[in-house]
Design a protein around this nucleic acid. Structure first.
Length: 302
DNA sequence: ACAATTTGACCAAT
DNA sequence: ATTGGTCAAATTGT
């Protein structure tokens, strides 16, 4: 296994997948134990073994993450501000527009990550790219806010991390600045799952902090009505109707100039890293595990 | 007709 | 040289 070559991003994804798997099996086991005459196709012992295996795999990934954290912590570190994005007059094919591909990573921006069983988040997005990602089974899709040309800088990246049931890992960059009237009319809610019922894993450089913060979260707020999720699909979400969020790590923050149709320098607001409720050590403010099902938020620092 | 998506090219960072 | 993020022409959808 090329464990060492795998980056933290990929490892994080695998951790999530493993945990999801484990919980899936645990739920199965629960069902099995609750049924009066459990003569299912799988034995209790078998399920227990699968859970154990899944968690072992998770721990294995985590320990390797801790080792790699220090070396990779700077991977998104920024080139300090200053020069324009496209300074050089480089060799490019004739006929190609000037600003193509010109962008620059920013030191930091609002960013957070969620894992959800649906891609739908109530926002109007427009896909602008897709990439095969190293060590990833599925491509990463790039979206920007539909109202980009009104100045909204919101972006997101979506990637399937697990199938059957399907899970999408979504990384958001920048909050929407477009007005409510510009958004989908029936979805005025703040879509940014910044401080919902959350679990945060903060690691500097390794995981040393877990905190849970409670907040209500209602599902219908995050789904469009036009988006017809079949009853079939809905039921398959349970009990997986959660979103797992991972905290912002540094990233760039390009500013789109609607008139110039180009990116401009800008430095923006810091992310309110829900630190107000972060605590050291393992702190469970959520009364029970059931609450976690609604929304998980991982606060993770590289 | 316009709007959204697809996809290879392009660029910065590593 | 490789990788990931973005652009924009071509294509598809409405």
């Amino acid at each position: 296994m090329e464990m060492g070559s795998e980056n933290i991003h990929a490892k994080r994804g695998r951790v999530i997948v493993e945990l999801l798997k484990g919980r899936e099996i645990a739920t199965k086991l629960q069902t099995l134990l609750n049924s009066p005459d459990h003569d299912g196709d799988v034995s209790v012992e078998e399920l227990a073994l699968q859970i154990s295996t899944s968690f072992t795999a998770t721990l294995s990934v985590l320990s390797s993450c801790a080792a790699a954290a220090s070396t990779e912590s700077a991977q998104i570190a920024a080139v300090d501000g200053g020069g324009s994005a496209c300074s050089g007059e480089s060799k490019k094919k004739v006929g190609v527009k000037d600003r193509r591909g010109c962008y620059k990573r920013r030191k930091s921006s609002d960013s957070w990550m969620t894992v959800s069983s649906t891609m739908e988040d109530g926002q109007a997005w427009r896909k602008y790219g897709q990439k095969i990602i190293l060590n990833s089974k599925y491509p990463r899709c790039y979206f920007r806010c539909t109202h980009k040309y009104e100045g909204c800088k919101a972006l997101k990246q979506v990637q399937i991390i697990k199938e059957d049931p399907i899970y999408y890992q979504t990384t958001y960059f920048n909050h929407h600045t477009c007005t409510d009237t510009l958004r989908a009319p029936h979805l005025i809610l703040d879509p940014d799952p910044v401080e919902p019922n959350l679990i945060s894993f903060q690691s500097k450089p390794m995981i040393n902090n877990i905190s849970l913060v409670k907040k209500e979260y209602t599902d219908h707020d995050h789904r469009t009505q036009s988006e017809d999720v079949s009853d079939d699909a809905k039921s398959s979400l349970n009990p997986w109707q959660e979103i797992i969020g991972l905290e912002p790590w540094g990233s760039y923050k390009p500013q789109w100039d609607p008139k110039m149709r180009s990116y401009q320098e800008e430095e923006g607001s810091g992310f309110q890293s829900c630190g107000s409720t972060s605590l050291y050590g393992l702190d469970m403010e959520v009364n029970q595990l059931g609450d976690i099902d609604n929304f998980l938020y991982f606060d993770d620092i590289y």
